[in-house]
Each structure stands twice: as structure tokens, then as C-alpha cells.
Design a protein around this nucleic acid. Sequence first.
DNA 1: CGTATGACTTTTA
DNA 2: GTAAAAGCCATAC
Length: 130
Amino acid sequence: MHFIDPQDRSQPFHQRVFAAVCQVPAGYVATYGDIGSVLGSPRLARQIGWALSSLAPELHPEHQTIPWHRIINAQGAISYRGDLERAEKQLQRLEAEGVLFDEHGFCDLRRHRWSFVDQIDQVPIKQPDR
DNA sequence: CGTATGACTTTTA
DNA sequence: GTAAAAGCCATAC
């Protein structure tokens, strides 16, 4: 599933997205733009959301190991776009991992935002999940 | 092929 | 702080 290199352009786009998402450990979040940056461009943000939307459990039960819930928008909030049920599940999962949201639906990105750069350059941080 | 559609982001007011 | 608009680009049709 996430054995491929997110930057390997020969791989299908959604597979690269999943590979990058799997690098975010529990207790952290990443923005759609962050994942896009890992793949090569922060402008891919919208396409990241598109790829994740195909992860609906009804559609792909085999992909439940992918921590899709750790991807939120640049405001530090969960993106709804029509699917309230999914958003509530996402909120529940994140808070269970220690990422708390205030009454306006925002979390502290400065504290929980995963740094892919640090991961590559230095600390091979343990992954509590997976 | 051209057009439409987004789990988005940034800028601007 | 919020809201609207423009830009974005991989897919779907």
C-alpha cells in the first residue's frame, strides 16, 4: 500500500498520495498542501482531497490502514464538503490521537503539524500507529 | 480532444 | 477575525 516512494512519478497519483499520508504518525496532522509538497507541488492540494475522497470505507475497505483522517486544511480545520458523517468520524479519530479542536473547529497546527522535512533530514521518528 | 468537478490555498477586501 | 474570488491540476465524461 504505502511501500512506494511518494515522489516516484511513475506510480499512480493516488498511490503516491496514500504513501505520503502514511508517513504522518498518530498525534500529528498534515495539510492537503503539505502532502502536495511531498509529491512535488503545494498546488496539488485540491487533487489530494480528490484522491482521499476515493478512500471511503464503503468503496475501499482494504485501505483502512491509511490514516486519511490526519489530513486537514491549511486553516487547521476539518474539510467537510458535504460529507458530515465522514467529518465527524475524522474529528473523533483525531481527538482520540490527542489532536484537540476548539469550539470553532480549529486545532493548533503549530503543535500538531507534521514536518516532512525534519523527517527526511533528521529524526527517523517512531510511528506509534501502523 | 474540451469541459466540468472538487476532503484546497492564497490573496484581497 | 470572516468571506468572496481566482488559481490550481488530476480525473471523469
